[in-house]
Write a protein that binds this DNA or RNA. Structure first.
Lengths: 172, 172
DNA sequence: TGAATATAGTTAGCCGGCTAATTAAAATTT
DNA sequence: AAATTTTAATTAGCCGGCTAACTATATTCA
């Protein structure tokens, strides 16, 4: 069970050789981005395997959480917004979860265009069973790092995409 | 042009509240993983936008690099292995790139089952035009971090998934 | 040699992301 | 009130990932 498939992906050695030809090529930048990609993809691949064992995916899991905290169900549009994905993506996601009996669609009485998505008992049970596994999985993923290292990592990751220092101007 | 769609994704506050119910929930672990996901996804989304402007994707780009360094073309199986993806995925990738005139398929004289994929002049030109952009883009992505911070980040990311300290045993 | 097995590539069908186009209903505007 | 515009959701079709199943050809083994 290979952890991840990368065999020759962006290939540091090859790109390093290009540095001579391309003055903007910066080995440190490249290695940083490649490490970000590699580590994320390894972790995400492991995470997906865990989801898979429960008939879940990350999107399904998050959607279940949203529904769990919504007493009267949520519309497809609400869910699309909360998930941060397009409505057609959400439509397909709900279709699959409906087939899997995790959620159900109910016609919206107020708005004949709309539907309300509700958690089924099966979906609720699955979420409740999965949550402890989820947290244990998170702990496992960071088990190579001390608490201090986790803090450092988190801060560096956040700094990397913080708008403060700006893509253009550096207006801090 | 919103940088990324996250609106309510895994939702730190909500998960923190669950900590009381779930003894394994560890805020530091969760935040570390969420930061990894968030930062990767923001960066990848920006990267994809750059690729898009050139009619490329990350997979297409990497495939072009592989072909650029192969004098006699590469088989679909070779490319699938190097990319670390399944053959059907590679088959579809090549189909799209063939339509886009970036590569071409040539029947393999030695093996009637096989094909050799070759770079077209268009594909080679596009790669050569894109490479400087790629390196500038990498530099832009890490521009919030000093060289030292990049080193730290890279080391922490690598440590996070290093097998040394083990998923099970910690055999270091 | 002939049968069995392995390999190369494609297709079909699923997940999950997207945009564009469509339909139906609601909300606005005139 | 009627016409227009917006909104909710779906479908179609693309990208890119997967597995399973299939065809055709090579290879290996008996």
């Amino acid at each position: 069970m290979p952890d991840f498939n990368f065999r020759d992906r962006p290939d540091i050695a090859r790109l390093q050789k290009m540095q001579e030809l391309y003055p903007d090529a910066n080995v440190t930048s490249i290695q940083t981005i490649l490490s970000l990609q590699y580590t994320y993809r390894v972790i995400q691949s492991r995470y997906d395997q865990v989801f898979n064992q429960y008939g879940l995916s990350e999107s399904r899991f998050i959607l279940l959480i949203f529904l769990y905290h919504a007493d009267n169900g949520l519309s497809l549009s609400d869910l699309a917004f909360k998930l941060g994905v397009a409505k057609p993506t959400t439509s397909k996601l709900i279709r699959g979860m409906t087939t899997a009996k995790l959620v159900e669609k109910v016609a919206d009485a107020q708005d004949k265009r709309g539907v309300k998505i509700h958690l089924t008992a099966v979906g609720q049970k699955l979420l409740e069973d999965f949550l402890p596994v989820n947290f244990q999985t998170m702990n496992r993923f960071v088990s190579n790092l001390s608490a201090t290292e986790q803090q450092q990592l988190k801060q560096l990751l956040n700094k990397m995409v913080s708008p403060e220092q700006g893509q253009k101007d550096g207006g801090n």
